[in-house]
Amino acid sequence: MRKYFGRKIFVYALTFFAAVTINWMIPRFMPGDPVQSRLARASLSNPEASQAMRDYYNSVFGLDMPVWQQYLNFWGSLFKGDLGVSIWLFPTPVTEVIMDAVPYSLGLLLPAILLSWVIGNKFGAYAARSKWLDNTVLPVGYVLTATPYMWLALLLAWSLGIVGGFFPSSGAYSFALRPEFSWVFVSSLLEHWFLPFLSLFLVSLGGWAIGMRNMIIYELESEYANYLQALGAPRRLIRRYAFRNAMLPQLTGLAVQLGTVVAGALLTEIVFSYPGLGFLILQAIQNQDFFLLQGVFLFIVAGVLIANFIIDIVYVLVDPRTRIQMQGGAK
């Protein structure tokens, strides 16, 4: 057990190191100069003042040091929980910018992913044993999975938001309100949340349902199911086994989805101007905000790794086969 997790943790650490390094490199090797664009925004005419400001910014962001020094400093401050200062929202620290956005992304994606997973699996399992459901769920499921989610988002924003006027189509809450814990604010929050949520929910629903349907059919035709049927076991028992075993690959799929919980919503958040992490990525790129981009990516990497690690643990709990392999006891 310890050996298994030791090995896992080592792999995760290695992945983390590589991801952070690449993550540090990407913005720095992107074309463009963030300091230059800040200066342009200040539109100074005096070249001396401009030089002074450039020096100031360079030292604030640590860009005046040699590249290797920057890299080491980056790791150093990373362990202190310091991701630098945002260029776009200067002088707000990156951690603060990210922490403001995280609740929106999580609040959008976690329910969308978990609910679509649960409901999709239920639907798929039912579809596998009912012809009528199979003939409806399957085509609808295929259409849904094949739909690009930002397109569905646009469609929803246009039909239910702009034309229908049922839901607001941009922002996380009404501009007339300020965040507080009141009934008005919360209901505005929910109204704004609904459309982006629905678009993400619908698109992944189809995929889960199809996957589950196929897995159940496969399991029901497997040899243990045949054997149980030959011994006259009731369908209930066989279906229970099939459902449980079909859940295992679905669980892996969920892990992958949960890992991308933040990155996945990029386009949805842009369509609905929803101030989550995806929206931040766009802003960071447009404003050449190295530190913010780095910070967001770091957050995503950590998210993927943590989600995978959790699923590794869950898998050990639900699938005895992984437990056996862990002990190296399979003959």
Partner: peptide, 14 residues
Amino acid sequence: SLIPQYAMSAMNPT
């Protein structure tokens, strides 16, 4: 009763 051809995989693995 039956002893199936696939006795190796006749039992639910989980």
